[in-house]
Design a protein around this nucleic acid. Structure first.
Lengths: 259, 259
DNA sequence: TGGAGGGTTGACGCAGCGTCAGGGTCAAGC
DNA sequence: GCTTGACCCTGACGCTGCGTCAACCCTCCA
């Protein structure tokens, strides 16, 4: 007759584990001795070992009871099922691991390499960290909504950074948002450039987001994000509206230009 | 301004998850509207997405907060740590999977292939299922105590099954335990054969378990297991004692044989 | 006779939410 | 003005496999 700690030691488990198996009915409660101690027979050792073998193999405790009672074919089917689940779990973790290997620095978080290239190009051009951070957050939102399309768009976005007008625009924006002044002339200039670029794109038919443009929410979010980052963006939106354009992330013609 | 379900949908999580992140302080609680509903800004979407990226990568929620605030090198160190843990977890599961692949049929449960071969040989000889089951449980106990040694012992155990005396012994035991009678003559015959085999082994010095013999508990358990399986084993033990042998799984000389 | 080292039950804690229960709110159609 | 369905709220339990107190009893040895 064994005590609970002897039983546990023999099977290589903790006393607590044995009591847990009793609680969930996996291992039957043995007789008690005069002082209320559990006293185990040799058969209990065998039962416990059999339980642990299945548990070590990754079988949930809730299934072990049935498995130990099952006939050979049922057992085999259960084994197969468990094996499948383990395979799934491993695949999940392996995917996680791949993911995390990608997460080197803060910028890369959530972003395809093409996007980080784009952000680095912005820095090269002299765009301020604050504005780059805004761009980064915008692309995080875009990537969440259209994870696959973003990579397609980047080459042309990067190419556009060669346009002196766009460079000038980004530098002005950097100046605005790095300063604490409410200097309106810079904002007006930015709006002029932006409207000019929009006109060009409109005339050349460049604006073609396809079905993407159907979904307003992401673009509304992007504009809202910009306003949250700096309230002066609200003024910029007003200036754009005066020039016949609505929005910022996605510019929409309000009326035909007055030529 | 977004509702909680809009926020959740955008980030691809459930409403419950968002509330959970609030509870644990991972995502700050937003302002409430007049009726007490949470109202989210665009920035919350970005925060939530960043959280999910780390969570999807297998980072525990409890660490995500710090990671999002950390500088690049701290972040990199944390990533490495997580990667290590994921690797460990995957290794654990892969080991489980290997284990479970071994568990084909009931017999194999916990047993090295050599042992199942031995059990199959017993069946070939005509040993009853009941006795084979007893042998199986015995070897489960042995395997738990000496996982590595068992495989060494099996070849000679299997070889011994060629001994006609041993075959006869097993058949008698099968007869005894398959019947419900208390026929003592069979038990006496079994004891005679067993004692004879023990004498032979003793004289030829075959009995050599080395340091294994030092540990009484497993052998006591084996004997107890046999008695539990069938109380008539107790009588067999008595008969063996009359013949100068103590125990069953490990026979020990009580006194020099009376020649 | 006292203390160490067993044993007992009961209960909380862990991770990351899922899932009720039992309310209140909002927008739309009648 | 009323109903209906879709959301929102908080609070609380459930899941997995035990670890870890707490508070108390039993046994054995010096």
């Amino acid at each position: 007759m064994l005590t609970i700690s002897q039983l546990a030691a023999y099977a290589g488990v903790t006393v607590r584990a044995v009591r847990h198996y009793h609680q969930i009915g996996l291992l039957p409660e043995p007789e008690r001795d005069a002082s209320g101690y559990r006293r185990y027979s040799a058969g209990a050792v065998v039962s416990l070992i059999r339980i642990r073998i299945l548990a070590n193999a990754g079988v949930p405790l809730s299934q072990i009871g049935q498995m130990l009672e099952a006939d050979a074919s049922t057992f085999a089917a259960a084994v197969e099922e468990i094996d499948r689940q383990l395979g799934d779990e491993i695949a999940r973790l392996a995917a996680s691991r791949k993911q995390i290997a990608q997460l080197a620095a803060g910028d890369r978080l959530a972003l395809a390499p093409e996007v980080t290239t784009y952000l680095d190009r912005l820095r090269d051009i002299g765009v301020s960290e604050r504005v780059v951070a805004g761009e980064r957050d915008s692309w995080i939102l875009m990537s969440a909504r259209w994870p696959d399309r973003v990579r397609e768009w980047m080459p042309s976005k990067i190419a556009q950074l060669d346009d002196p007008q766009l460079i000038r625009l980004y530098r002005i924006l950097s100046d605005i948002f790095e300063s604490d002044t409410g200097d309106d002339t810079l904002l007006v200039e930015a709006a002029d450039i932006l409207a000019s670029l929009a006109d060009q794109a409109y005339r050349s038919g460049e604006i073609d987001l396809g079905e993407v443009a159907q979904d307003d929410l992401p673009f509304d979010l992007l504009d809202a994000l910009a306003v949250e980052a700096d309230p002066r963006v609200k003024r910029l939106l007003d200036l754009m509206r005066e020039r016949g354009w609505d929005g910022l992330a996605r510019l929409e013609r309000l009326a035909e230009p007055s030529t």
